[in-house]
Amino acid sequence: MTYEGLFRLDGRRAVVIGAGSGIGREAALALAAHGAEVVCADRDVPAAEATAAACGGTARELDVLDAAAVARAADDTSPDVLVFTAATNVRKRLLDYSAEEFQRVVDLNLKASFDVVRAFGAGMVARGRGSIIGFASIRASVTEPGQGVYSATKAGLVQLLRTAAAEFGPSGVRVNAVAPGVVETPLTKQIKDNPAWYEAYAAKSALGRWAQAEEMAGAVVYLASDAASFVTGSVLYVDGGWTAVDGRFDPPN
């Protein structure tokens, strides 16, 4: 491998779960641009087909809440790279949460991730190679009122991925997490639609703005490629400095 080809993914198949929109869509486009054959998986079939058409890939319907469907997808596709982004959030304080809301967030953010990592990881371990990239969040390490259950699931996801890295590593499989800050995606629409919240979140990061979904794509390509051949069990923060800044303070003149 020469350095000029360090990020190339020619000859590799990547499955992107959540490819229909947001970060998943941009990840699929970026992986394809670097030579990967991309399977665009999403519950929203027309959205997956649109992404597949844009990157020369194939579309697949997949509801990650259906563990049997996840297992079939893993067997059918046998990828070298797996990226999964699917998540949900119910922004409520703990005392206002219902049991149904708690279960809904845990089922998608943590239980489905468990099923995905096991199903796709088993094939990679058997083949002796692979890269698994899961999307956590800054909320895995820092939180705020109304983010308790989401934060708990993302912290749990990080530890799940770290454990998978420890268990799959001897077989040549790498497992890592990307932890975005605030990104303009459908998941954050509730915040974006409130100007006061939008500005407050923008001001919190060191860069003073929100991220665009395409700004997560470089992290995905890096972790998928040989450039990260000795990187596993890591959390790559792509947060504009959010977790580095302990609040914002402008001293008086």
Rank of each mutant, 00 (worst) to 15 (best):
A219W: 10
A165G: 02
A219C: 11
F120E: 05
A119P: 04
V39Q: 00
L160R: 02
R60H: 11
V83A: 02
D115E: 15
A41M: 02
V221C: 08
C40F: 00
L207T: 10
A213S: 12
P145H: 09
Y3P: 07
G123F: 12
V182D: 05
D66P: 08
Y198V: 01
W210R: 13
P46L: 04
G56E: 13
L31R: 06
K154C: 10
M216P: 02
S205V: 05
V245Q: 14
S234H: 15
G5W: 03
D250K: 11
R104A: 15
A177K: 00
D115V: 13
R43H: 05
E49M: 02
N176M: 04
L160D: 02
S131L: 12
G156E: 07
A213D: 06
T153C: 10
A73E: 01
E167R: 12
A19G: 06
S151C: 09
V245D: 08
T243E: 09
R129C: 12
A228G: 11
L9Q: 07
A136R: 03
D80W: 05
V90K: 05
A50R: 01
A227R: 03
S21Q: 15
Y150T: 05
S98N: 05
T51S: 05
V245M: 14
V182M: 12
V83H: 08
Y198D: 08
G218L: 10
R93W: 00
N89C: 08
A164P: 06
R127P: 05
V182L: 06
Q159S: 15
Q159F: 13
E37A: 13
G35Y: 11
I17T: 04
D76V: 00
Q159W: 13
A53V: 03
L62C: 10
A68V: 14
V39A: 12
